[in-house]
Design a protein around this nucleic acid. Structure first.
Length: 745
DNA sequence: AGCACGCCGACT
DNA sequence: GTCGGCGTGCTC
């Protein structure tokens, strides 16, 4: 029997090995095996059974060992890994590595045992000397000389009552040899502790939940691939629908993966979910999977799933790689969350991988969100996903005190450039007098301005990137900070021809200045990348703010990192719409939500915390605020897009980086790349900015980068990989840095 | 990733 | 003459 193995050794090539007769029955596709490679040993995953086509069979080596007698990377995960390698232009071995828990990669489960055997034999004289000077050592030595094969070190020492020191001394002088061998660990004792079974009441479903569940039940019963987008406002009880669907899949004998964003994996959440799931399927343990588990815990859970003792896993992003058998359902909660994206190679999106894994297994994938991502929404609109709605809240709670200020009116009133509305200014002054605090949020740093039409609200955006163009005073131009697109600054509005163009100063610096003007005695601190360059500054400012030494904090996204400010009773979103024009508007949305929570928590008696939202465009009417708690109390206050909000169409922004040690070679790649784009992708690919970018030196290697937009990621990357082979580019020369959906209005 | 091989400058 | 720098290529 001959098998092809993917080594986990830092390179990406299928190597073939002969399988020793004793292992033939147990080795199969997906097995984790130990292989000799060069003069060392590593682990590898069996990828195919069969002889190589381009390598002489008589030169094949034997594989050394089988680590587990079950497939460590089941066929579906191996397929998934191959798909990911193409889709994310990442080396396959790296992907396989991320799919396996670290301990498994190091062949844990195999206990190391030290053996000792005879080394260079001592002559009689030396033995006699030893006998006299070190009787313990002599005793051990004599015992070993009587053995036919190496013996377990700890066993022998215990039997003979000899200390480890004696053995080590003999080993050191060469009379004995020490070696280690791996021993199969005894199967895990099934001792998962009975978590207090929190009263796991089967909640009654309301009409909407029931309708959603009925629809899902049909989908799951089909036993074929499909995706459902469950769009339900927060508090509409999505979780209960998930649980019913999971029950359905488990009852069918299937396996389930339940993904949640990492932040949602609090101990309470996990405990509650776990007790509910285990009451649904009492025979099957629920494995919890996240980055804070100890290595042992993770291996145990992995083992239970891989052997079929457990059929359901709840976890963050990487839980999508759990070796769940007979997969029938994957649930991705809060599918829009950016936490599903991995920011290191291999860069992948947990939700997209989930959809693909469902496809490979003929399973159903359920995506849930109150505010679906653009790509999921677009897929639902296009009919590729089934779209379910839940619009009704289970319990209506009071709304936070949220004021939306129309800045167009504000500007007319003040007849000039306005950064802070009257309402916000009065609010801040009031807080200052009461010794309470204010946070002003604006996700643009610096002093730069953007152009905006005063009569129609039009914001000039980059035609390629959809971000607002930045005004550069030096040469009277508008520039895109993303792709470098440039045009002369217009005199009248490009849309309605009105001459009322306003150059809005919306950077944090300008906000800080404005606050100083209206609150001259207040202590103001600005927090953005410009001011936080020093390492400890960030923590220092946050702790000072918390201690009340700062009255007003002006900041960008980064203030969302330490949001525990009980004395903040006013939050100002200085420019709500500009934020919504940014490509990463969801991150901004998230910051909004967190800030609304801050205000929601800090009410004073009968006086609720206040959020003042400043906005210029009618589009902001689509922004709606609400305050309520989800099932786990995770969201206390939330901003969301109103349900009839029109999602803009989207494309993907792809960022590739080409790297290598040789600049001349890289230059050659760059030229080939340019020719490739010209010839192969005239309509699918729109390369932006200098393409390719100049070659630059980074640490010990060189690189150039390319950004482009595309409607079909897999098509383009597939083509690119094909060309890579044709051009004989090295495997690792291309790296996908990022694949991001971009909204283009 | 390791490791060998091979091609050039420095030097016990 | 050899030692050793790293650039290049291979590992079944």
């Amino acid at each position: 029997m001959i098998v092809g193995v993917h080594p986990i050794a830092g390179f990406d090539k299928l190597l073939h090995y002969k399988v020793p007769a004793r292992l033939e029955d147990a080795v199969a596709v997906g097995s984790l095996v130990r292989i000799p490679i060069g003069r060392r040993f590593t682990l590898g995953i069996v990828g195919v059974v069969g002889a190589p086509s381009d390598f002489p069979i008589d030169r094949l080596k034997n594989l050394t060992d089988l680590v587990y007698d079950f497939p460590a990377l089941p066929a579906d995960l191996l397929e998934l890994a191959k798909w990911m390698a193409v889709y994310y232009a990442a080396p396959l071995d790296g992907i396989i590595e991320t799919m396996l828990p670290g301990a498994v990669r190091r062949a844990a489960g195999l206990k190391q045992e030290k053996l000792i055997a005879l080394g260079t034999a001592l002559d009689d004289e030396a033995l006699a000397k030893l006998e006299k000077r070190a009787p313990q050592q002599a005793k051990l030595y004599r015992f070993i000389t009587q053995q036919f094969k190496p013996v377990a070190k700890n066993l022998v020492l215990k039997r003979l009552g000899v200390g480890a020191g004696s053995a080590n001394a003999l080993i050191k002088q060469g009379a004995l040899r020490e070696m280690s061998q791996q021993v199969k660990r005894v199967a895990y004792a099934d001792d998962f502790s009975e978590g207090e079974l929190v009263a796991a009441l089967p909640h009654l479903l309301n009409a909407e939940q029931q309708a959603a569940f009925d629809a899902l039940k049909v989908e799951i019963a089909k036993d074929e691939f499909g995706v459902t987008l469950l769009q339900g406002v927060t508090g509409s009880g999505k979780t209960e629908v998930y649980l019913r669907a999971i029950h359905e899949a488990l009852a069918d004998g299937g396996g389930v993966v339940f993904l949640v964003p990492e932040v949602a994996l609090t101990p309470q959440t996990v405990a509650r979910l776990r007790s509910r799931l285990e009451s649904i399927a009492p025979d099957h343990a629920c494995v919890v999977w996240h980055s804070h588990l100890s290595e042992g815990e993770r291996v145990d859970g992995w083992h239970e799933l891989a052997t079929g003792q457990a059929r359901i896993v709840v976890g963050a992003r990487s839980a999508i790689f759990a070796p769940v058998q007979n997969l029938r359902l994957i649930v991705v909660d809060e599918e829009h969350e950016p936490a599903y994206k991995q920011d290191e190679t291999p860069r992948y999106h947990g939700r997209d991988v989930a959809v693909m894994r469902a496809k490979l297994n003929g399973a159903h994938c359920l995506l849930g969100s109150a505010t679906p991502s653009l790509e999921s929404y677009a897929n639902a609109q296009a009919g590729r996903y089934k779209h379910l709605h839940m619009k009704q809240r289970i319990d209506d709670r009071e709304l936070p005190f949220i004021d939306v200020v129309d800045m167009r009116i504000e500007i007319m009133r003040s007849r000039g450039l306005t950064t802070l509305s009257q309402k916000l200014v009065h609010g801040m002054q009031d807080r200052f007098e009461k010794k309470e605090q204010t946070i002003l949020f604006l996700n643009r740093r610096g002093y730069s301005s953007s152009m905006m039409c005063r009569s129609c609200g039009h914001v000039e955006e980059c035609p390629h990137c959809s971000i607002s163009m930045t005004y550069h005073r030096t040469d009277e131009s508008l520039r895109c900070h993303m792709c470098g697109h440039e045009r002369g600054a217009p005199v009248r509005c490009p849309k309605c021809e009105a001459p009322d163009i306003r150059w809005r100063g919306t950077g944090t610096q300008r906000v800080e200045e404005a606050v100083t003007r209206v609150l001259p005695r207040a202590r103001i601190e600005r927090m953005d990348t410009d001011t936080m360059s020093k390492k400890n500054r960030f923590r220092q400012v946050l702790s000072e703010f918390r201690a009340g030494k700062i009255d007003v904090l002006v900041g960008t996204q980064m203030i969302a990192k330490g949001l525990d400010f009980p004395n903040v009773t006013l939050v100002g979103l200085v420019d709500a719409d500009m934020s919504m024009h940014m490509p990463d508007f969801r991150a901004t949305e998230r910051t909004f939500q967190l800030l609304v929570q801050v205000a929601g928590r800090s009410g004073r008696g009968d006086r609720a915390g206040v959020v003042i939202v400043q906005t210029f465009t009618p589009q902001a009417d689509a922004i709606q605020f609400s305050r309520h708690a989800d099932f786990d109390g995770f969201a206390e206050g939330e901003l969301k897009i109103r349900k009839d909000f029109q999602y803009p169409p989207y494309r993907h922004l792809i960022h590739h980086s080409f790297r290598g040690p040789n600049p001349e070679k890289l230059l050659f790649f760059a030229e080939q790349w340019a020719r490739l784009v010209e010839k192969e992708f005239p309509d699918q690919l729109e390369v932006r900015g200098p393409a390719p970018s100049p070659i630059e030196k980074v640490k010990d290697h060189y690189r150039f980068q390319v950004w482009y937009f595309t409607h079909g990621v897999s098509r383009v990357i597939g083509k690119l990989n094909q060309k890579r082979r044709e051009f004989a580019w090295p495997d690792d020369v291309i790296q996908v840095m990022d694949v991001d959906p971009v909204n283009l209005g």
